[in-house]
Write a protein that binds this DNA or RNA. Structure first.
Length: 420
RNA sequence: GGAGGGCUCGCCUAGUGGCCGAUGGCGGCGGUCUUGAAAACCGCUAUGGGGGCAACCUCAUCGUGGGUUCGAAUCCCACGCCCUCCGCCA
């Protein structure tokens, strides 16, 4: 969500953002509603002011005068009621449009309609070469008894999976390692709800646009969050933080649920695109300062790269195009990790800066040293998301005899074993 | 699931229909005093919207949303959350 004043003063910048992000938002209608809303607000204010003074007069009046006042104000009350209704309905329409306002993307973002316009900005590592025919993660896992797919789908339908035995330990090792890396970098470890109310989903920007992507539990007016970010933002919703508390850095771990409606029949095999997964997410709330936010963006990207490098997985860092980055993003960098079975790099991490777009929605504020109340900037990035990263790991580190080399950093979590 | 109690300005608290955007204390900030500090004393100390160049004016907000009333923190209804007890349960 953008600042209304900013929209009034820079409508062209907003129109431009709507265009390059491929959105459907009528900025002129928004401006018109904003103006109408302000006009109605003014009228309602005046009417209520009058109502208050009338009430005071009433208190002082005698019975005869009171009867007279009641009669006089019947019509006025009706008018006030109508004004209030108009204000409410205009406000509702305005809010609907405001929730669709996009963050203005940064100058460096490639302009393009979708991920095809993304640009690789750096690479690390070389895709492994095998002197045998490598298996994909599904065949490898089944051969080793590390996963069940057919049976899992009997239980939970398409895209379901079961991890078994050592795969369970390996998955947990990835998360434990990610938490250790982030803990060492000063992040507060947080295990957060995945079952959430509507408000934090709107606050993060997952709703209203992403409704089709989110599991809904109508009986309880609840939803299953697709990322820990939802809870982490929601934790501070409505608060005015002390500037001294910033930056807030969280490493949030949670199960994540996504309906994958827009990807039906894509990646249906294996562990790449599933409805339920486990993720450690990095999340930062920092002062409303672009330079500081940029530093955190680099830091979040750096933590993810540290993890991938320690795991020995080749990856590329991608500068995401305007059409790929989503409504609220200022800047987005995906990290794509090499998957031998696909012969390509696939997204395992996504690092985003949102400036104050999310804080505004979630109503998270802070008090600056000089007492000014501001909306902070928020950023987030994946640290480890499994089983997708687990699949990358076993594919890349497999051996000819269908075993998997354990990266050194994971060995402490696997009883010191260097081979599974 | 059942029964009860509660939700007021950072924290605690006063307030049962108009004098209440709201009392008092604590905390915080500024000042006086002091060599310095403490104590004491004085002052300030919510957020959002609208109007105005500005000083400032105005409206809204006492968990949320409705209702009653000329007028609601206060009365009524629904919902949310917290606490206590019983039951159930990982």
């Amino acid at each position: 969500m953008l600042d209304k004043r900013f929209i009034r003063e820079n409508p062209d910048a907003v129109r431009q953002a709507v265009r390059v992000k491929g959105l459907d938002l009528d900025v002129d209608e928004l401006l018109r509603l904003d103006q109408e809303h302000r006009k109605l607000q003014f009228e309602v204010d005046q009417a209520q002011s009058r109502r208050r003074s009338f009430a005071k007069e009433f208190a002082r009046a005698d019975e005869e005068r009171r009867a007279q006042l009641r009669a006089e104000h019947a019509e006025f009350d009706q008018r006030l009621k109508e004004l209030r209704e108009q204000l409410a309905s205009t406000g509702e329409r305005l809010t609907n449009l405001m929730l669709q306002t996009p963050m203005i993307p940064w100058d460096g973002a490639p302009v393009g309609p979708d991920e095809s316009a993304n640009v690789v900005i750096r690479s690390w590592g070389e895709p492994p070469t095998f002197d045998f025919t490598p298996l994909d993660h599904v065949d490898l896992a089944e051969k080793r008894g590390w996963a069940e797919f057919a049976r899992a789908r009997r239980v939970a339908g398409e895209r379901a999976y079961v991890l078994c035995g050592e795969a369970v330990l390996l998955e947990r090792a990835l998360h434990s390692y990610a938490l250790a890396v982030l803990g060492a970098r000063g992040f507060q470890l947080m295990s957060v709800p995945a079952l959430v109310k509507e408000a934090p989903l709107v606050g993060t920007g997952m709703l209203p646009k992403g409704r089709a992507e989110i599991y809904e539990i109508p009986a309880d007016d609840a939803y299953l969050a697709g990322t820990a970010e939802v809870s982490l933002v929601g934790l501070h919703s409505g608060e005015i933080l002390d500037a001294g508390r910033l930056p807030i850095r969280y490493a949030g771990i949670s199960p994540c649920f996504r309906r994958e409606i827009g990807s039906a029949s894509r990646d249906v095999r294996g562990l790449l695109r599933v409805h339920q997964f486990e993720k450690v997410e990095q999340f930062v709330i920092c002062a409303a300062d672009q330079a500081e936010s940029d530093r955190w963006h680099a830091e979040l990207l750096g933590a993810a790269e540290e993890i991938l490098q320690a795991l020995g997985l080749a990856y590329q860092v991608v500068e995401c195009a305007t059409g790929d980055m989503g409504v609220g993003k200022y800047r987005m960098n995906d990290i794509n990790t090499w998957f031998p079975s696909l012969g390509m790099y696939r997204e395992t991490h996504s690092c985003s800066s949102l400036r104050d777009w999310q804080a505004r929605r979630a109503n998270v504020r802070y008090r600056d040293a000089d007492g000014t109340i501001r909306f902070p900037f928020t950023l987030n990035n994946t640290a480890v998301a499994t089983p997708r990263l687990l699949a990358a790991l076993i594919e890349n580190l497999q051996t000819a005899d269908h075993r998997v080399r354990v990266p050194e950093v994971l060995r402490p979590y696997l009883g010191g074993r260097d081979l599974l």
